[in-house]
Design a protein around this nucleic acid. Structure first.
Lengths: 147, 147
DNA sequence: TTTAATGCAAAATCTTTGCAAAATT
DNA sequence: AATTTTGCAAAGATTTTGCATTAAA
């Protein structure tokens, strides 16, 4: 799952982007983050090994990634943009208490929904993608039913 | 579907909130907006009939509504919060081209998903709610299949 | 009356922009 | 060498905050 710098280079080239050190490390950090970080959070982590990197560059680069389809913005209620380089179709669990956003995927559920929309289409809409946001609370027990 | 001012008063009282003119008109305007407006958009519309209303009050009031469960924030990619007073469980269609966010509800789909989660629960999660975001483009033809 | 909400403006937060310097092709 | 990207700081956009005034209970 981890991507090497040379794989990331290939990826950038394949999108017609210049290969810069900043793009490589930003992509690498984002791709290996499971927590859908904000630009600021990425910047803080990147600074440690790349002291000269600037927050503006992180913003610009993330925007470039979104434009070229290397990453997506994750809708968030926290007042800042969050990003995701996992482009496999997947859903998000929003933990209302901890504000974590965690990936979720289930092929059966996926099939269920796709089958539904194949059967019942929505007027004037060409569906490109759908995402389920599952909102809930962390519980330590096995008591995790839907209410 | 439309709510009268006296119905809105009752609603505010039922939530333990003081009944102010601002709260009534903000709720009324939000409840009758189908487009999931931002605070600023509501403010602009409200100003016409309530010239002394302030943007800060709109923000504070919307926040109060969210806290008391009279409204919800709608996740958005546009850089500002959008709000919704339709609290019936429903989903959202995001038109990527026009940036519109339109409500969607289908009881069959609802059942499908609920049934799925009843059968297959997610570790450490107590599901409170789920929302499907359907992303797509406006089309004028009947060609609206999922791809 | 007492308590809470409003309006206003200033502050805080988050993101974008402009441009010279640096890096990539 | 030509072009794009970066870093920086300033500007822009959005939201929150503090506090005196006003309104509600």
């Amino acid at each position: 799952m981890e991507k090497s710098f040379s794989q990331i280079k290939e990826l950038l080239i394949s999108k017609g982007l210049k290969v810069t050190h900043q793009r490589i490390v930003i992509y690498h950090m984002l791709f290996n983050s499971l927590d859908h970080p904000t630009a600021e959070l990425l910047f803080d982590k990147l600074k440690i090994n790349n002291p000269s990197i600037s927050l503006g560059t992180v913003y610009k680069t993330l925007d470039t990634f979104v434009q070229t389809g290397l990453a997506e913005k994750v809708l968030s209620e926290t007042g800042s943009y969050r990003y995701d380089a996992n482009l496999n179709s997947h859903h998000h669990i929003y933990f209302t208490d901890t504000k974590e956003i965690v990936d979720f995927y289930d092929s059966e559920l996926q099939e269920l929904i796709i089958t539904f929309f194949k059967k019942k289409s929505i007027p004037n809409l060409k569906i490109k993608d759908f995402k389920l946001q599952i909102h809930g609370e962390k519980v330590d027990t096995a008591e995790n039913q839907i209410n």
